[in-house]
Design a binder for these strands. Structure first.
Length: 462
RNA sequence: GGUGAGGUAGUACAGUCUGGUAGUGCAUGGGCCUGCAAAGCCUAGUGUCGGGAGUUCAAAUCUCUCCCUCACCUCCA
């Protein structure tokens, strides 16, 4: 598999050994997750599902930042403890992302539960003279790491001149960043250098090492984390181990809202829970996967509606296969299905090109609907196509509304009843049945000689 | 100012690495199917691939240059 590596600025072949190890920068739990968080996490969820479908064992670590100045400020504002605040939003995170059909990561380490690991790492950096102590805290000395700026392609001189950071006279260099900040107010922990709390970047270096070792396959996150967060992680981790940190840096593009940046001041932040409420997980996933992962995508109602159309097509073809009956005299070969599968997989293997994979997916959908139009979907045909359709849907994380056997019997009964009315040309009664069943989100599909049906997901915003 | 990503049909995207005069979805037109619908199928049209120059038998693709957009450079997925 090839993935574009931000560090080397080139597509890089990834060879996995016994398992694939991934570290994904998660969220700071001081507020509800928004659609931008969802995109990054969904992209990695699909990556994980794809790798697993290729028989790889995937170990994925996604952190929660639960100690941070912003958290403290928000907790004070709301007059709650930081623990109350972070546990609430951590719960909300799982509520939202379970609904988004995101598979749980292998580990969800929290910063506050790994203070020891961070202190050990900081000690090592001090021992190696890569860090120093001031009256405000412990700082990483950027000048001691020769490759600083290699990820974000920044040179240190420019960073200093363009720096908008408040100058801290205690620091040796304006670019130096905090590993540990001294403080007397909660939340604080003891350290060999004084009470305080960790800086933001150190947690990922410490926790990735704890769970994945000194080097691992893929480090992911949103593009906006490249500088300074990931740059600083590299500096910390590679200074302490002298090993290569991540083999590949994979960054996911931003989401804009109607062409504008998502921001609190504009008031256009789309929370996951809000978008879920209106559109549901399938539409959100199709939307988040609609452009190449590395490029920005724009959120708008119009785009979401287009994805509703696509979901409807998926539902239709899925039910056509599911409700197949009888056997076909002419055997259906799996040639076309294999072609779609091949295109789907090779697209994903080529820098995880999801839009191209989706084209192969929709190609299969069209084939199914085309066969269905000719009433050629029989059990034998379905048994060839359905497993592949389900495999693709599973990789994409698309969940079609299922139906119980009881409901199925009831619907088949109603179809028979309706057909009797239709034969009698009693269309008023026949249409009544159609309207009645529509309330349960079931749509009849009348082919030439038979009637099929689809149970549709109810989409509030539609 | 610096760095990066982009500018391809009405629209959203792919194709650029690995040159061979453009694809896919949605939307639109026409047809089919239907008792009417819905769903779907079939079919059609639309682009001087941001401008210009260069290399080449051949450029959306490589090189140079100009214009424009966006993101990041401060917390940010």
């Amino acid at each position: 598999m090839q993935i574009f590596d931000t560090l080397n600025n080139t597509k890089t072949e990834l060879k996995f050994l016994d398992k694939v190890t991934i570290y994904l920068c998660g969220v700071t739990v001081y507020d509800d997750a928004h659609i931008g968080h969802a995109r990054t996490i969904i992209v990695f969820d699909v990556l994980r599902r794809f790798l697993e479908s290729q028989k790889n064992i995937v170990e994925i670590v996604q952190n929660f930042t639960d100690v941070d100045d912003k958290i403290i400020a928000r907790a004070n504002e709301k007059k709650v403890s930081t623990v109350e605040l972070t546990s609430k939003y951590t719960e909300n995170y799982f509520r939202d992302f379970d609904k988004l059909n995101v598979k749980r990561a292998t580990h969800y380490p929290k910063a506050t539960e790994h203070i020891e690991d961070m202190l050990n790492l900081i000690s090592q950096l001090i021992d190696k003279k890569c860090a120093y102590i001031t009256k405000n805290g412990v700082y990483f000395s950027v000048s001691k790491f020769r490759d600083y700026g290699k990820l974000s392609k920044k040179n240190i001189k420019e960073l200093i001149s363009g720096s908008r950071v408040m100058v801290d006279e205690e620091k040796n260099d304006p670019l130096d960043f905090a590993l540990w900040k001294f403080s007397d107010t909660q939340p604080i922990w003891n350290s060999p250098w004084g009470k305080g709390r960790p800086g933001w970047h150190i947690e990922c270096s410490a926790m990735s090492r704890k769970y994945l070792g000194d080097g691992f396959d893929i480090h992911g996150g949103g593009r906006d984390l490249i500088f300074p967060h990931h740059e600083n992680e590299i500096a910390q981790s590679e200074s302490s181990t002298s090993n290569q940190f991540a083999k590949i840096w994979m960054h996911v593009g931003m989401i804009t809202i109607n062409g504008e940046k998502m921001s609190k001041s504009i008031g256009n932040v789309k929370s996951v829970s809000h978008v879920l409420e209106n559109w549901g997980s399938n539409i959100i996933r199709l939307f988040c996967l609609s452009g190449h992962y590395s490029k920005p995508i724009d959120y708008s109602e119009k785009i979401m509606m287009e994805n509703v159309t696509k979901l409807r097509q998926i539902e239709t073809s899925y039910y056509e296969l599911r409700l197949a009956e009888g056997m076909n005299k002419k055997s259906y070969t799996n040639e076309f299905v294999n072609e779609c599968k091949e295109e789907f997989d090779s697209a994903l293997n080529n820098d995880f090109n999801i839009p191209v994979a989706l084209t192969a997916f929709y190609k299969l959908i069209r084939e199914i609907n085309s066969l269905a139009a000719d009433e050629k979907i029989t059990c034998d045909v379905s048994s060839i196509i359905l497993p592949e359709l389900e495999r693709m849907m599973d990789i994409l994380g698309i969940n079609i509304v299922k139906i119980s056997d009881d409901e199925k019997d009831e619907i088949n009964h109603l179809i028979e009843k309706r057909n009797v009315y239709r034969n009698e040309k009693n269309f008023d009664e026949a249409d009544k049945i159609r309207e009645q069943i529509a309330e349960k989100n079931i749509t009849f599909i009348d082919h030439k000689n038979s009637t099929r049906w689809v149970k549709r997901e109810k989409i509030k915003a539609e």
